[in-house]
Design a protein around this nucleic acid. Structure first.
Length: 135
DNA sequence: GCCAACGTTGGC
DNA sequence: GCCAACGTTGGC
């Protein structure tokens, strides 16, 4: 089982929108590094839903329910998407500020490369952020 | 194949 | 609104 963090601007698509829909295609990713991570995703993997620009925080956990399929918003046939479903809303959001200030998360790929919209997490990092959401 | 110019993302 | 990071484009 692998763990991930995926970014979306909440005024475009928020965690609440995903809960409303029940299942959604995570499309529009046009970055090769992010695409590689999405290709590595397996059914049952868990990912934080992170709100970029507005909120700037992880707000919920989602589950990968369908592995790489062609991105329906892409006409070139080059890009893939995955399908996700809500898993659990965090008791309280974990802000970027909190993550940056935490030594246990210093090696997080997302912190080191802030523009990467899909980033992997170690199981330890994942559990740590879950714990922070309950603190 | 190098590199400058330019566009986009995302935090502040 | 600004700026840093970084990806892409295009001239040479």
């Amino acid at each position: 089982m692998n763990y991930w963090l995926m970014k979306s601007e909440p005024d475009v698509f928020s965690y609440a929108d995903l809960v409303k829909k029940g299942k959604a295609e995570w499309d529009g990713v046009r970055n090769h590094a992010a695409q590689l991570h999405m290709k590595a995703m397996r059914k049952g993997d868990l990912a934080f839903f992170y709100h970029s620009n507005i909120g700037v925080e992880a707000v919920g956990i989602m589950e990968i329910v369908e592995e790489a399929t062609p991105d329906s918003t892409d006409e070139t046939g080059k890009w893939i998407a995955v399908h996700v479903a809500p898993h659990k809303k965090l008791d309280r959001p974990v802000t970027l500020k909190t993550m940056k200030a935490d030594p246990a998360l210093a090696d997080m790929v997302m912190l080191r490369q802030s523009r990467l919209s899909v980033a992997p997490l170690t199981p330890q990092q994942f559990e740590h952020i879950v714990a922070l959401s309950k603190a």
